[in-house]
């Protein structure tokens, strides 16, 4: 029983008419860990969370949360989970405390216990001072923290966070991250969906990358990053004349495939040691007498991650075929 996953999904299928939102989605989350579900808009992240949180019926496959079958025992599952959705699902007119008390009562806590728990959570999420004010007057970050608090009322076995920082300013995002780190330290199992690579990187123990309703890569962030190459170096040339030479130079420091785009006069590649790679490329360029318009180091965008991941798969298939 110790090794039983807190969240388990096997071959989940969900269709909306012709479109398959989930197409054989698999997931296993160890108790007490944070699992990131990373993918672009429309990849199926929210659909997966909504099925696991008993909000959507599944069309195929099997899902368990806290050892309970989501399709067969939804009422029991609901007593074990907390859900924090994409918008702050709290009452704007009520105060923060009144919101938490109301949700506490709906979890069937007695009036006194609900009040005590509301105060505890306001304290915990740094909202004690503003607990009596109407939620309307809260900042985006405060709303999301109240939203998190509402999801934590029962100390759920599994907390679902569906893009908890989407639409927040950097300050609000930091506030929410801090609150989430505290939850994680307290041992809550969290399934976190996000479009941001750095968010998954910062918070998750393991990441599943999801695209068109399927998991296309899974592993700890460090492993995924080395697969996709982590940082990238990008050289923009003045003229495309020396493109081939530059590809050669960059290839020496690259940890993956070097990409060159003639029209943009750009050469880019994944690198592991940022500073060493940059120094090496700058020196080699100056030795060869090639003028660069721009040289930069940057994190891969989600698009590049997907390109990389699907690219690798295609390569593997070719190897097998050969």
């Amino acid at each position: 029983m110790v090794d039983q996953p807190a969240v388990l999904a096997e071959g989940l299928i969900k269709s909306y008419g012709e479109k398959r939102a989930l197409d054989g989605f698999d997931l296993s989350v160890a108790p007490g860990s944070v699992h990131g579900l990373l993918g672009p808009n429309g990849a199926g992240k929210t659909t997966a969370v909504r099925i696991l949180a008993t909000l959507l019926r599944l069309d195929g496959g099997r899902a368990e949360v806290a050892g309970l079958d989501v399709a067969r025992q939804p009422a029991l599952v609901r007593a074990k989970i907390g859900l924090v959705g994409q918008s702050a699902a709290v009452d704007e007119v009520l105060s923060g405390r009144q919101n938490l008390e109301m949700f506490g009562r709906l979890y069937h806590l007695g009036p006194a216990v609900a009040r005590r728990r509301a105060d505890e959570l306001l304290d915990y999420f740094g909202l004690a001072d503003t607990g009596s004010k109407a939620v309307k007057s809260y900042s985006g970050g405060m709303r999301r923290r109240l939203d998190l608090a509402a999801g934590m009322i029962l100390r759920p076995a599994v907390l679902f966070l569906d893009e908890p920082t989407t639409g927040l300013d950097p300050r609000g995002r930091n506030e929410v991250w801090e609150a989430m780190r505290a939850l994680v330290a307290a041992g809550t199992t969290v399934l976190l969906t996000t479009q941001y690579l750095d968010e998954a990187d910062q918070l998750a123990d393991r990441i599943s990358v999801i695209d068109t309703g399927k998991v296309i890569a899974e592993g700890p962030p460090s492993q995924l990053k080395s697969t996709i190459g982590g940082d990238r170096i990008e050289v923009v040339l003045r003229t495309p004349a020396h493109l081939e030479t530059v590809v050669g130079i960059v290839a020496k420091v690259a940890t993956g495939e070097v990409e060159s785009i003639v029209d943009d006069r750009t050469v880019s590649a994944p690198v592991s040691d940022r500073v060493a790679a940059l120094t090496e490329v700058v020196r080699a360029l100056s030795d060869a007498g090639i003028e660069a318009e721009d040289i930069s180091l940057r994190r891969p965008t989600l698009d590049e991650v997907f390109l990389q991941l699907t690219g690798h798969r295609a390569e593997k298939k070719e190897e097998v075929a050969a």
Binding site: R50, A75, A79, A88, A89, H108
Partner: peptide, 18 residues
């Protein structure tokens, strides 16, 4: 419905008709 409060209610172990 649009703010997600309905979904929160539906994800809770409260009475569905409430």
């Amino acid at each position: 419905k649009s703010k997600g409060v309905t979904d929160r209610f539906r994800s809770m172990p409260m009475s569905p008709s409430a």
